[in-house]
């Protein structure tokens, strides 16, 4: 008799933060934060400036090391991540201030996002022997899929530094997506965009989540966008978690309203 494997439910936890505290010298950036992100959901981190949202993303992918707490990703518990290890385990991200490789073309940026998918050594590639050429074709073909998905084909050969801001944001998303991540961390993907650009970007994020099943954790200030696309909202204020739940619930939370609008004293 074949054993029946329970279908993976949407509630399966992909990322779990436990009691994370992070300080820089005497400055506490994050205090005792715990939350879980389920596989396949879009989770938004919101909160006023300086609440510790970006620091938290940096903890998740190992740029910062928390003094206390642990990060569990895909079943593996670690005191802290390292950027290289995080990338290998399938965490990709974009940055608040675009961190593209400005001297390279769009295509090269996207291809670089796939650098971990390479198997051939640099010697094979330099001499163009063995599997290098075949692998080049395959890398290119996958990169083209991402370029097509995000509609940036016309700028394929353009040097990234020459593109307008909104497009650079999209190229950065393409570079992260090219790595075929399990978890995508987006730090203010819509900052500084106009309404039309925000609509496009929201559409892309939802499409990535649906088509590739990528789990997304994003930081965003536009509450309309956050409520519209996320399944789960975590609210931070002064480095502490003040709310965690579905958007409708968070919207009614008194503490959240206080943090955003101020309270009447």
């Amino acid at each position: 008799m074949t054993e029946v494997v329970a279908p993976t439910t949407r509630a399966e936890t992909l990322l779990q933060l436990d009691g994370i505290s992070l300080s820089f010298g005497g400055v506490k950036a994050i205090t005792d934060i715990s939350f879980a992100v389920a596989r396949g959901e879009i989770c938004a981190l919101i909160g006023p400036n300086g609440a510790g949202k970006s620091s938290l993303l940096n903890v998740i992918n190992g740029v910062y090391r928390p003094q206390v707490g642990s990060v569990t990703f895909d079943g593996e518990v670690r005191r802290h991540m390292r950027p290289h290890h995080a990338a290998q385990r399938g965490i990709a991200r974009t940055f608040q201030n675009i961190a593209l490789f400005k001297g390279m073309t769009v295509l090269d940026n996207v291809l670089t996002g796939r650098n971990l998918k390479r198997r051939s050594t640099w010697v094979e590639q330099a001499l163009r022997i063995g599997r290098a050429e075949r692998e080049d074709d395959e890398q290119r073909s996958r990169a083209e899929d991402v370029i097509e998905f995000l509609h940036i084909q016309p700028w394929r050969e353009t040097v990234v530094g020459k593109l307008p801001y909104g497009l650079q944001k999209r190229v950065e998303l393409a570079r992260a997506l090219a790595a075929e991540p399990t978890l995508l961390l987006l730090d203010e993907p819509m900052a500084g965009m106009n309404a039309a650009e925000k609509r496009d970007m929201s559409r892309f994020i939802v499409d990535i989540n649906r088509e590739y099943g990528t789990t997304v954790v994003l930081i965003e200030h536009d509450i309309g966008v956050v409520m519209g696309i996320s399944d789960h909202v975590v609210v931070l204020d002064y480095g502490r978690k003040i709310a965690d739940g579905p958007p409708e619930e968070v919207r009614r939370n008194a503490e959240v309203i206080a943090a955003y609008l101020g309270t009447r004293h």
Partner: peptide
């Protein structure tokens, strides 16, 4: 050949933005 291979792209990535290079898995 080298500058157009993965190694060449990794070099340029390190040159242009080393933190981002580390985050996408370049050693």
């Amino acid at each position: 050949n080298i500058v157009r291979s993965e190694l060449g792209r990794n070099w340029m990535a390190v040159r242009d933005m080393d933190t981002a290079a580390a985050v996408i898995g370049i050693s």
